[in-house]
Design a protein around this nucleic acid. Sequence first.
DNA 1: GCTACTCGGGG
DNA 2: GTGTACGAGTAGC
Length: 888
Amino acid sequence: MKLQVLDTDYVVVEDRPIVRIFGKDEDGKTVCGFVKGYFPYFYVMPTEDGTGGVEKLISARPEVLKHETVLKRFPRGYSATPTKMLKITLKNPQKVSELREALKANPHVKEIFEADILFKYRFMADYAVSGMGWVEAECLDINTHTVKTDRTVNITKLGPADSAKNVQMKYMAIDIETLSKSGGLPNPAEDEIIMVSAAFYPEHRGKRSIVITTRGTETDSIVRCLDETEMLTRLSAVIEDYDPDIVTGFNVNNFDMPFILKRMEILKVPRTIGRCNEKPAYTKEIMKNRVRSTIPGRVVADSYQLIKKNFSFKRYGLADVSRILLNQEKHDVAHSEISKLWNSGDLNKIARLAEYARKDAELALDLVVKKQLLDKYLELSKVSGVLLQDSLDGGEAGRVENLLLREFNRRNYVVPCKPDTADIRKKEKEKEDQGLKGGFVLTPKTGLHSNGLVVVLDFRSMYPSIFRSYNICPTTILTGSADGVANIKTPAGYRFVPKEVQEGIIPNILANLLEERAKARQAMRNETDDERRRALDAKQLALKLLSNSFYGYTGYTKAKLYVLDIANAITSCGRYLIQTVNQTVENKLGYEAVYGDTDSIMIKIPVTDLDAGWELGTKIAGQINSELSGVMHMEFEKLFKSLLILTKKRYAAWKFVRENGKWKDKIEMKGIETVRRDWCELVSDTMNKTIDIILKKGDTRGALNYFNGVMKDLAENKIPIEKLVITKSITKNPSSYAGVQPHIELVKKMQKRNSQDAPGVGDRIGYVIIKGNQLLSKRTEDPDYVKEKRLEVDPVYYVENQLLPPVERIFTALGFSKSELLGKGRQSSLAEMLRAKPAQSNVFDGFMCASCNNVYTSAPLTGLCQCGGKIQIKTPTGPTERIIVAGN
DNA sequence: GCTACTCGGGG
DNA sequence: GTGTACGAGTAGC
């Protein structure tokens, strides 16, 4: 039988483990396979004369099944021969940590290996079973009441099977509605669940979604229950009936799932919603505010978490995310309205609430299914070996470590245990003292480059290629004096034995990963079927991600194979390589390198025609590559028609790439933020437009004029108020804020006007700054109120606090001064503009000294009065608190 | 400019 | 479960 692996775990029967593999066969039938007779084990390296002592300790332990002396290779530092170690096999996985700790405290023990590997992963590594991978099993059907799969078997023989296809997964999204007694967030200890909605892909008994409720009218897809207990029992039955592989929902991990499970516990509804009748689903808090839900035999994939990891947005609410990614709207029900609808006694209103709940579940489902958010993680599992659940929740280190365990074991090496807190502290200190130097950044030639094209070259997989070129690995590094051993010396002086003496494991893993990736990319190019193409793209992306994780892993203090010297060796080679390339470009080829960072270089060429530039770029790349050795290789994939460099790590470029013989252009920005939570839309618009004019027209003066125009529109109140809204969130009760915060002042104001509609804790509030002579924080106002009362926004605030800081950075790089920016002495000067309509503007009335009240029509360049006092904006009532800094 | 702390999503 | 261990953005020095 062939099986695609969804989940694995084990149960203990009579002090012996039985491994369980949950998966689906080629027909899509769910299967649970049991494996008996596999036991946990680990290795102990005794001290010089400690073998007897260690043996004595373990002989006295009843949990030990057997122990034997084996020859294993030590993982850190090159050694030509293996070492004698004790392999200890136990009966019960749950006893491993206890024995490990006892051995750790024993003076005869030098080091313990592989004593902290989850039993299911120990098993999977030994049988070459990967999460989402296929296995081939010889098995016998059995009857058991312990699991809920279509088929249950005892596995007698097991091994990996080769298959690129994926079984059709069943997705179910869950969303609950609750009412809060306290007014804040609902709390499962006291608040009930009033409705549960669920959406299915593929459909469930002909329905895309259902709602389960304790009030309202029963329909084709609305199930009416008597009470919450019946509702949750019904939910459990639906889960069992549909039998999803993937359970999703928006923020299910942190809200819905813990809430449901807590209510089930209180109401004594069995929580066995997984594929196992004995193990209930549970949630566990991992650090504060981080909860992980586990459902045996299924995978919990939170669409909120997935989106947050894979997209960069300003906000991640279900409404925002659905609008952007699905072009769909959430139903319009404010959360304060939920209890009103629920308690209205009006069946139509309750039906409206049910449809609102239904839509939320459907959106949460669509996000995962339509945006194919699982593809990448599925491939990461296949390629690293970790279960899909861990691929979703865990980080890069876990994936690297899983692969390392398999590959180290295959070559007879053992893997160290994770460092404990004391070890970690020691490593952090070492890292602090020794330092980890990063990549080399070429000094940028700042300003605008638009006379001639810029050829951009990148090292292909730079750090993985360095691992390979220099045979860098914990198993090949030479420590101390290793006279007489052949070695490769890296630029920073670290030495590694060459491949001919001993091929490094990491270099070998990377060679395979990169080869697989090249194959996947090639296959992708030739693939015509969309579905297959997407899978291949996800695969090549996963392979890239995994290969790029190795460098970071070696410098991660919590890693089992943290070796700072390796991380430093890698970056030192990188710095050496990019500097060598830079010298070749400037001294040998005679071109100017205008910038470069870590693995890239930007070369200016005296050519303006794209096709000619392509030809020359290709030639330059060829010349550079002819001087690079081994697998180090630079790729030429893009040209810049213009490039604006502000500082190191900050630039914008008009990029051109060739796709099927056609040129495609795009503005590429690095390190220049155009969107920020605390900036209004006008800032993003102005930044983008300014950069656009500079890059596409090469017209810096025009960009300046454009900016002056924006300031003018602002002063003349011509900017739509929507573009001026700044949003901040209310995190706690407005009365408990220590300092004066603009948005909190507005909440208080709104509460006074109409306490019903004022935003509350947890809401986000949008505000604008209006003209007036009060403190800035008192001049925050509700945009709707501003429209209604026809109030004017404060242009000075918007220019100084919103527009100027980011735009100024751009113009400074172009050599303009701040006074030029503000149009000092020109008609469009901000001061001029504001003074132009003194009658309407009751805010601006020239400048004034804060101490002697001396009045100025234009601010002194120093920002200070002759008396030494600060110059502020004069208003009819006196100087404002805003300090004017003139000049520079 | 750097490090320390906070907060997100959900009803 | 042979456990693990966020990350961006903003406030504060």
